[in-house]
Amino acid sequence: MSDPDPTLMAGQRIRARGVASNAAGRFESQVRVRVDDGWDIAEDERLLRTEIRVERPRSALSYNRSPDLPFDRSVNPYRGCEHGCVYCFARPSHAYLNLSPGLDFETRLIARPGIAGVLAGELRAKAYRVATVALGTNTDPYQPCETEHRLMRQVLEVLAEFNHPVAITTKGTLIERDIDILAPMAALGLVRVGISVTSLDPDLSRRLEPRAPAPARRLAMIRRLSEAGIPVRAMVAPVIPSLTDPELEQILSACRDAGAQAASWIALRLPREVSPLFQDWLSHHAPDRAAKVMARVREMHGGKDYDAQWGRRMRGEGIWADLIAQRFDKAVARLGLNQKMPSLRCDLFRPPPRAGDQLALF
């Protein structure tokens, strides 16, 4: 952030964005550099705005075999995320779209209208075997563009019709709009929600997660969902050593007071393009702690910025990872957050009848 990025036009205004770089993705064979040709640019063209493209999905369910994850399938209504969290481990996925994991990830989004209908077709397949589907595992399904596109709500309506279990991870307050769907599903044991809280410091949060709700607002989300009977897990993620880890116990306590039933944590992950973006952010926003933060990160990942090995990528290893884990375990035990979230029910799954279907005799 200290030097102008050559991929941005001169005088480009970047407001409330997580990064200030739009370097090409790792698959690009060319690098484009903007050159001032001397023509004046209109003021409204200087402000970097969010644009949303449309992709017609051919499939809805994405499957994984990762032993680190408690689910084997997920649905992503959007690609990219306007929340702009500088540390987001999903940023490198934008490179597969020939877009930058930097500013493109948070400004050039892709909505997938029709994904709910595609999902319904996949759930009706004779070979389909029900298991919890995860939402919000890559990018947030309740980011601001959901207000207009309503894809997440459409997906939830399908899952509710099928009595299909679902686990949701989000920072977005738009989840409160869907309590009318989620509360009845929760009463049947079909849904649980994880709310991510990185820091309770509103200034730090705004710089780390520029377009995500403020910490106090996320605590209010936990409270409202819990009051509606929806099980909520507090997710302290990511834990950034020497930056947010001093708040660990305070975050857990605030989430417990707001109504969270359980808690989890994930260490900072800096895969591929995320590492230089995060280090650039540190040099601008926390120059006095940048070296210490990265030293701790590398100590947790065997001397590297990131270790992608299963079993280590989520928590790291070594003395600092062990220390955070011990602090977390003691805090959740003291606060009563060391409870296992109830298993979601799969036995209620039933494809709803369609017009023309033969009725069952029994």
Rank of each mutant, 00 (worst) to 15 (best):
Q250T: 14
S226H: 08
Q309K: 08
A291M: 10
A295C: 06
R272V: 04
S226P: 07
I324C: 04
C255M: 14
R272K: 04
R223N: 09
Y306R: 08
A234G: 10
D257T: 06
G311I: 09
S226N: 02
L282P: 10
V297K: 10
S226R: 03
A267Y: 03
Q261Y: 09
E299N: 07
R312T: 14
R233Q: 10
K292H: 14
P241E: 05
P287S: 08
V239I: 14
I324A: 03
R315I: 07
Q326S: 15
R312A: 13
P231R: 14
D257A: 15
H285A: 15
Q250K: 09
A254Y: 08
I230D: 05
I251G: 07
L323S: 13
K304Y: 03
A260N: 12
D305F: 08
D245K: 00
I251H: 04
P271I: 07
R233F: 00
R296G: 00
R313P: 06
S226Q: 07
F328E: 11
L282N: 10
R269S: 15
L243C: 13
M300C: 12
L252D: 12
R223T: 07
K292C: 11
C255R: 01
I251N: 06
E247V: 01
R289K: 14
D307S: 02
Q261E: 12
A321M: 02
S283C: 10
D280L: 00
I324F: 01
P231I: 02
I251K: 00
A321H: 05
A228I: 09
M235A: 13
A262I: 01
D307G: 01
V274Q: 06
D280C: 04
D257W: 02
V239N: 06
W281K: 10
R289H: 11
W310M: 04
L282A: 11
E299D: 11
D288R: 15
G316C: 11
G259L: 10
A254P: 01
S283W: 02
A325C: 04
V293F: 09
P238E: 13
V293S: 12
R313N: 14
M300V: 02
A234C: 15
I230N: 05
S242H: 14
A308H: 13
L225V: 03
E249W: 00
I251T: 06
S242V: 12
H301R: 10
I240H: 03
L282H: 09
A291S: 13
Q250I: 01
W265M: 02
P231S: 06
E227A: 15
M300I: 06
R223S: 14
R313V: 11
A286N: 04
Q279Y: 02
V232N: 05
L225R: 07
S275G: 06
G259Y: 06
V239W: 08
P271E: 11
L277N: 07
D305W: 08
T244M: 02
M314C: 04
D288C: 03
G259D: 10
R298T: 05
D280W: 01
L225A: 02
Y306I: 07
L243D: 06
W310R: 04
G302W: 03
V239L: 07
D288W: 12
V239G: 06
